[in-house]
Each structure stands twice: as C-alpha cells, then as structure tokens.
Design a protein around this nucleic acid. Structure first.
Length: 372
DNA sequence: ATCCTCTTTCCTGCTT
DNA sequence: AAAGCAGGAAAGAGGA
C-alpha cells in the first residue's frame, strides 16, 4: 500500500471514529451539502446533551498540549474534511506527531507542511483551541482568587445580558452553563434566528453560526434547526413578520470578550482587501500548493477564474474570522469592485473576473519588480 | 460624534 | 433545477 493511500485510509478511519453516528458512511462535509454540522457548530446548540456524544471528537475536549498522535490525526482529518482538501496530496509524515510537537509549530511551518489553505485553517484552529484552554485556566485562577473576596461573585455566577452569537471553533458553553437569566439583547429591527430557536425563555442559546437558512444545515438530517423562511421572522410575540433587508446586527461574535476589560483594544491595522487577497492567491500559487483554488485565464490581461469558489470563500472567511463566508457573499463584494474599476466585467463567463485599472500588484512586470 | 470605506448579509430577478 | 450573476438595500467594523 502506498503511503498516500494509507494516509487516506487512516484519515477515513479517523473520521469514522470521530463521527460514529450509527451510520456506516463517512462524513461528506461538502461545503454546499454538508450533512453534519462542524464540531464548532455543534457547540452552539443550546442543549449539548441532545447531541450524540460520539460526534464530539476527543481532541476537542483536550488541550492540544496533551493530544496524542491519534488526536492530532483526528484533528487534521476533521479539517481535511471540512475544507474538502485532497488528502492524497498530504505527506504521511506530517500527520504523525503528538500534541506538544504540534503546538511548537509556527504558522509558517504549518503553511509549508499543509499548504496555504489547510495550513492556515489548522493554524487558526490551533490558536483558538489553545486560547480556549488558556482562558479556562485563567478563569479557574480568577475564580480561586475571587473566592478570597466573598463580596465578589465568581465568574461562573456572573449574569450576562448578551447572547453569544458565534463561538467559531471555541466552546465556551461550559463556562456559561451556570449563567442564569441570560437574555438576548433586543435588537434594532432584526432578530437573530437563534432567538427563536431557544427552547425556553431566559436561558442562553448558542446559535448555529452557519445560519439556519444556510445550505449546510438545510440538508442536515440529524440536526434540524428550527426552519424559518428566508423572508419571514418571528416577533417576540411569536407572530411572523417579514424580515428586514440587509445585514442583521452583529452582537458579540467572540465570547472571549466576556472576560475582556472594557478598555478598547487598539484597532489592528487594516487587513488586506478582498481583491488583494484574491490577487495574492493568484500570484503565489505555491502557497496553496495542494489546492488549485484559482488560475489565470489571461495573465497579461489580468483575467482569472475561481476553480474552487467555495474554498476561496472559506479561506477569505478564515482571514476575516467569519466562518459563514460563502462564494455568494464574496462575489457580491467582488461586484462592488466594478464601479471602482478595481475589477472589470467579464460577460458570459462564470467565475471569471478581470483586474481593472485601479488594481495593482498583479501585472507581470510589477510582480517581477517586487520579487513576488 | 459623525462620516466614510469596505465589506457583509439578504434579497429579488435574471441568466446560464 | 441548480449555480451563478446583477445590483439594491441596509447594516457592521474600523479608521479618519
């Protein structure tokens, strides 16, 4: 047996182990037809006990520092499936390491080992998992400290009047499980669907980050989120009304902020723009060595095509810490570039765009000049 | 505090 | 039928 097919088999077995749901077939976590929610998504469900315990992989309940080789393999496998990565292109040797070894790897090392797409996803996941356990430790220490001061409530008893919207890869439900009387903020026009899916008033409900109307959950046979039409939402009184247009308000996306002080964090420097992100994928094909995400149709003219549109969208979502990014949404942002002439229209060709006169850094001369 | 840019989200209608 | 495209509308995040 070749090492690559062996790896595929191991990864498949790891998946079978991870997702023993009584079904014989392995997961098919296609981005468009996912049949199970991502592990992180599961943790947004208000009642974890209603989930099959087997679905929650072991690695998720352990500090990466303490992962075994098997845990690391399961974790890699999870992300391979999640990103539709071609496992046959992976080197077996990269998947055989334990948690402490993994935790010592730098972002660059992970990118080199697993490529730009999978590597950055793994790095992101690792950082968040580490943060999760670091936060747990901090909370415990703080609680120990606060016990010395009877007038102060323990963190685990603090009342929070804000709903957790998106815990991404990080599970904080156990931190909040003793929180009483949590109620979602009333918003200014749009209510998140999670508010309607809450089974009982007052208790915190975790929202499925890929919204209930998203494709990924629609086809999910095991986890049926309350389905509402795209057009209608339920009011507090339970009436159905037409939802407002546009983007619903974003509440606290990051539960870590519950424990942050009120001092405003300094704004990070503006990240690259979408068109720059796209450009960089095109001019650095070696950094997504394992996935042909995009290709030049006409290098000189700046015409390019999305080969894996949803994978690119996921990558963009990772960069923006937005797990619900889709090609549909990404493409809307791309279409706004037409007016600004950052992109030119390419009529009649699906997934094909062209850099416009207001975009830079993609021309052959430019890239050669800057050693790109 | 307000405005602006750059998205993000959602939508309807149309095309491929 | 599904996926993609077009573009309006509204809102969020971060910066000026």
């Amino acid at each position: 047996m070749s090492s690559t097919s062996e790896l595929c088999m191991i990864l498949t077995n790891a998946n079978m182990t991870m997702y023993q749901t009584g079904r014989s077939e392995p997961l098919q976590p296609s981005l468009t037809t996912v049949s199970l929610p991502a592990v992180g998504d599961l943790l947004h469900l208000s009642d974890l006990s209603s989930c099959s315990a087997n679905i929650l992989a072991q690695w998720y309940d352990l500090n990466p520092q303490y992962w075994s080789k098997q845990n690391v393999l399961e974790w890699i496998s999870f992300h391979v499936e999640r990103s539709k990565f071609d496992a046959s292109t992976l080197s077996m040797s990269y998947c055989s390491m334990d948690g402490p070894t993994l935790c010592q790897l730098t972002r660059d090392q992970l990118l080199n080992m697993f490529g730009m797409s999978l590597g950055s996803q793994l790095y992101q996941s690792l950082v968040e998992l580490k943060a999760k356990y670091d936060l747990n430790e901090t909370c415990k220490l703080l609680d120990n400290f606060l016990e010395e001061f009877p007038d102060f409530p323990l963190l685990s008893t603090v009342e929070v009047n804000e709903v957790v919207r998106d815990t991404s890869y990080t599970d904080f439900s156990h931190i909040f499980k003793n929180f009483e009387n949590m109620k979602p903020l009333s918003d200014n026009g749009y209510e998140s669907d999670s508010m309607h899916s809450s089974s009982s008033g007052g208790m915190l409900s975790f929202q499925n980050p890929s919204s209930p109307e998203s494709r990924s959950s629609e086809s999910d046979p095991e986890f049926s989120y309350p389905q509402l039409s795209k057009v209608h939402i339920k009011t507090e009184r339970g009436e159905m009304k037409k939802r407002g247009r546009g983007r619903p308000p974003k509440l606290s996306r990051d539960p870590k902020h519950f424990y942050q002080t009120s001092t405003k964090s300094k704004h990070a420097p503006r990240g690259t723009h979408l068109w720059e992100f796209i450009r960089d994928i095109l001019i650095h094909p070696e950094q997504n060595q394992n996935q042909a995400l995009m290709k030049w149709e006409d290098r000189r003219e700046g015409v390019f095509k999305f080969l894996k549109s949803e994978a690119v969208a996921q990558l963009w979502g990772q960069k923006k810490k937005n797990s619900s990014m889709t090609y549909e949404k990404l493409s809307r942002a791309m279409r706004y570039y037409y007016k600004r002439e950052i992109l030119d229209r390419v009529d009649g060709r699906r997934l094909v765009y062209k850099f416009g006169k207001n975009s830079t850094g993609w021309k052959v001369e430019e890239t050669e000049l800057h050693g790109m």
